[in-house]
Design a protein around this nucleic acid. Structure first.
Length: 309
DNA sequence: AATAGATACAACCGCCATTCC
DNA sequence: TGGAATGGCGGTTGTATCTAT
């Protein structure tokens, strides 16, 4: 297994490609295209297997390859996407034009990995224990050592916490029972009936941080999770008491920060609306306390995801 | 200057999914 | 319809280059 029939030939050459081989491959592909890779070596006069030719073309020779250092934006996108989909390098690469899965994989395995393992954090919480730092590193190391293939692995950390600033925000209002009631112009879906969010607003600090828990039935994140999920700032992710997304809620009348309990956050169509309307910054919380936030433009992330969301 | 260790990255390997006959 | 061929992907390895001593 692994070797295709074309690779079993004894004359097949392995190892680094020479400039002459590159030239032959480029010349052939640009004039004939690459209908069947197994035919390419013979027709191009190369003593390589078709698989090797394909790899060389895709990862190095094709004209739309973008070489050079990753930009901070690309780096951020890679981190966010990796947090969302794990080691699905081809999927991640599809969101970075000109970058290959191999390149991103190599980049992640060297530079980003090294960077993440440094416990640097723009923390404002002087009380953060070394234990939580260890938890963070443990999680990150576990994440890097294992093979997260779906969103579940994102939550292998016990009770991960996220901050998510959003602007603009979901249309709605706080009702008399201290619930956040989302306005439903978009409520065609019957499953959206119970979109109320319990508000745990500190009574003595109205207008400050509000915690609220969704009463929407769970499991609705699934469609979203297939493609993207909550981007996490991997450098600052720590375990907390709750899974929380902090939402910077702004409307015409108030400027509140609100917190959404992601454990119960759900509803696919609602999610779509949510994410489409989302723009802001990410960070983390620890025991309901902000540890850090980092700048990350959500709209950039969202716009790069499949429109099927 | 020599050398060992670290790093970056190109390429291969093994497997799975899909296509084709 | 089943098996072979092929494409594609993620993991791993090999090697050139860089850096520290």
């Amino acid at each position: 297994m692994g070797h295709h029939s074309c690779c079993n030939q004894q004359k097949v050459k392995r190892g680094l490609w020479s400039p002459e081989e590159d030239e032959k491959l480029i010349k052939y592909i640009t004039t004939h295209g690459y209908g069947c890779w197994s035919e390419v070596p013979e027709k191009a006069g190369l003593q390589r297997c078709g698989k090797s030719c394909r790899l060389r073309w895709i990862n190095y020779l094709r004209p739309d390859i973008r070489r050079g250092r990753f930009t901070p934006e690309e780096e951020k996108l890679i981190i966010n996407l990796h947090a969302a989909v794990g080691n699905r390098w081809a999927h991640i690469a599809s969101h970075l034009p000109g970058r290959t899965d191999n390149e991103i994989k190599n980049y992640w395995n060297s530079w980003i990995k090294k960077k993440i393992r440094k416990p640097s954090r723009a923390t404002t919480n002087s009380n953060q224990s070394s234990q939580s730092q260890n938890q963070q590193l443990e999680f990150l190391n576990q994440d890097l050592a294992t093979k997260p293939q779906n969103q579940e692995t994102l939550f292998t950390i016990p009770n991960p916490s996220f901050i998510f600033d959003i602007n603009p925000i979901l249309p709605g209002h706080v009702n008399a029972n201290n619930f956040y009631q989302i306005d439903h112009n978009f409520q065609e879906n019957p499953t959206l009936n119970s979109e109320t969010w319990h508000i745990n607003q500190p009574q003595d600090h109205p207008g400050e941080m509000i915690q609220f828990t969704s009463s929407i039935n769970s499991s609705c994140l699934t469609p979203l999770l297939e493609n993207i999920m909550v981007p996490i700032d991997m450098q600052s992710c720590v375990g907390g008491e709750h899974e929380i997304i902090a939402v910077d809620h702004r409307n015409d009348h108030q400027m509140n920060d609100q917190w959404i309990d992601t454990q119960q956050y759900s509803c696919s169509s609602y999610n779509n609306f949510f994410w489409e309307q989302t723009e802001g910054t990410f960070g983390t919380t620890h025991h309901d306390e902000i540890i850090s936030t980092t700048s990350s433009n959500m709209r950039d992330v969202i716009s790069s995801f499949p429109s099927s969301l």
